[in-house]
Each structure stands twice: as C-alpha cells, then as structure tokens.
C-alpha cells in the first residue's frame, strides 16, 4: 500500500464524471489525504484472513421462476429525460 499519486482524470473517466481543473486539483489532494489515512490498514497482518463481502452468512437466496406484474410503460417513460415514442432516446453512441 505505497502512497502514490492518483491519476484522477483516468479515474474520473471510469466513473463518467466531468471534472473541472479545480476539481481535479482539489479531489486529487483530498483523495491522496484519504489514502494516507487508509494506508494505516497496511499495519494489519491480514495475509491469512478471509475477506468479508457479506457479514451475515446466508446462502442460496433465490426466487421461483414465476412472473410478476410489470410497470406501466407510460408511467416509466414519463420519467425519461428524453423519449421518442415507446423508446428512451439517447445521444449518439460512439462505438468503443
């Protein structure tokens, strides 16, 4: 857990967040500070410790393959920032 400078622009791209130059500076500094604190974890001897993803152990929670009612389309589309007929409309997708 060495302290390193974060490539904040790369992270922001992954997170789909447009940042101003000021934000890049501020967040970059704040995140580095936080990582500094977080690096305290490297003092823990955790080699042989199992990771906890869920604290209450439960297994195989599933549902039967039985249909349930769907939402009313008009109600859903009424919330759409932009719709066209029965569809959600989005700007041009750049193939990636």
């Amino acid at each position: 857990m060495a302290s390193e400078t974060i490539d904040i622009r790369y992270v922001a791209k992954l997170a789909a967040l447009a940042l101003t130059d000021d934000e890049v500076e501020t967040f970059g500094r704040q995140l580095s500070d936080l990582l500094e604190h977080v690096n305290a974890l490297s003092r823990l001897d955790i080699e042989s410790v199992a990771a906890t993803a869920q604290v209450v152990e439960s297994r195989n929670v599933m549902r039967e393959d039985t249909p349930r009612p769907c939402l009313d389309r008009e109600r859903v589309l009424a919330e759409a920032p932009q719709r066209q007929g029965a569809f959600f409309r989005v700007p041009r997708i750049i193939a990636e």
Binding site: A16, A18, V76, E79, A80, P81, Q82, F88, V90, P91, R92, I93, I94
Partner: peptide, 16 residues
C-alpha cells in the same frame, strides 16, 4: 441521464 432523473445534454452519450 438515460432512464430517469437529471440529464445534461452532450454531443454524444459519453459527454451526456
């Protein structure tokens, strides 16, 4: 910005 909530338009979906 696709299905609900705020959207700020952009030239392409990524910018949006």
């Amino acid at each position: 910005g696709v299905r609900y909530g705020l959207r700020v338009e952009g030239n392409d979906v990524r910018a949006m």
